[in-house]
Amino acid sequence: MSTMERHIPDRLKSPLERRLKSWETLLLAVAVAIFIANSFASPYFLNAWNLSDATFNFTEKAMIAFAMALLIISGEIDLSVASIIALASTAMGAAAEAGAGTPGLILVGLATGVLCGAFNGVLVTRLGLPSIVVTIGTMSLFRGISYIVLGDQVYNNYPIDFAYFGQGYVFWVISFELVLFALLAVIYAVVLHKTNFGRAIYAIGNNPTGALFSGIRVARIKFILFMLTGLMAGIAAICLTSRLGSTRPSIGFGWELEVVTMVVLGGINILGGSGTIPGVVIAAFVMGLVTFGLGLLNVPGIVMSIVIGALLIGVIALPRLWAMWRAR
């Protein structure tokens, strides 16, 4: 039929042009603006050690946010991450009481995280339950187990060298957590943007039926993502427990909302299908800078939550309002 060969170019817009017009660029501009504003607002801001301290505001949450980003892009969500932290921390505390050394504690923390994630994953992918309900349930269950084990007690019998993960510095003001955060950011960016696995995640999030009909093993990939999210919560639990040096059942309470906020602020569509890891990285810095800056100005934490809540709604509402206003 086709005698005339039709040539279809691979691409029209250059990747650079696309990148310049992206959400990430806008977010980066916001981050820079906040940075500049902060450095004018407080004389204590531009201090290497202060800035280094500020990174602790987001590194642990951001680690979870990377995995959560993949999960949300695939069209699921995990609201139990903060409770996984509590359970993993409790398990590590119990292991420490039993005399486990630092390598053993790490193993316990990671294994608890992975098991919790796998539990969520089985319920969602095997039984076909909605992840939002499942993880609201496991959110109560996991933290509930911590309460059963600990009640109003505290575990604080951690070995001395365990403190390194949350309090140690690799080089000058560069903390272990910051290095881990950077390393994980690179790994997650590569996995999501440069591998078959990442491509499948986008396909699933955009159209789970279409992905299934294209021969993608949708359930298996979602299961892996739940385990990954659990693993990251386990890693965050190690860092946080090490930093605080103690475990109470209320550890990390409410973090799931901050993690989700970070992910959404980073430009990941809460309905799945789009978003990038660089976006989440910048969003982590934005949230860290806002918290730190307001803290230097002696604004209480609860008021910062207004800013975070407004940011969450605002970043989604503003583009839509803008589009509505332009369409008039």
Binding site: D10, R199, A200, Y202, A203, N206, N207, G210, A211, S214, G215, I216, G273, S274
Partner: peptide, 14 residues
């Protein structure tokens, strides 16, 4: 098709 993804990604998906 996964309509929100580009042509080449749809073709190569499986």
């Amino acid at each position: 098709a996964i309509t929100a993804l580009p042509i080449f990604q749809n073709v190569t998906l499986p």
